[in-house]
């Protein structure tokens, strides 16, 4: 991972996930407008817990990564686009 990348610009993978989120959640912003480190829930994008469920379904379907309610780090995983993408990349099936 390129550590010198600006914190405000999306990595290619973040952009891909952002595009899927915009389509699945029918967001009124474009994928480019999702700041990678901005909060997804509450203030930031204003998503709610039902959106979180949609994200979990999408992540399971498209990347084979299961998000569960009893995982202790859910707050962290759902905190931003970047955190979500890092979690997917760390846990997706090899290959």
């Amino acid at each position: 991972m390129n550590t010198t990348r600006s914190t405000t610009s999306q990595t290619p993978f973040e952009h891909e996930v952002a595009e899927r989120l915009v389509a699945a959640l029918q967001l009124e912003v474009t994928a480019e407008e999702i700041a990678p480190e901005a909060p997804l829930f509450g203030e930031g994008l204003g998503l709610d817990s039902i959106d979180a469920l949609e994200i979990a379904l999408l992540v399971g379907r498209d990347y084979g990564v299961t998000l569960r309610s009893d995982a202790p780090d859910n707050q962290q995983i759902f905190s931003s686009l970047r955190a979500l993408c890092q979690y997917i990349q760390a846990h997706r099936a090899a290959g």
Binding site: A52, L53, L57, L67
Partner: peptide, 13 residues
């Protein structure tokens, strides 16, 4: 409880 990020994950499960 309503109001947690993973509330609806629990519902779905």
């Amino acid at each position: 409880p309503i109001g947690e990020v993973d509330t609806m994950l629990r519902v779905a499960e």
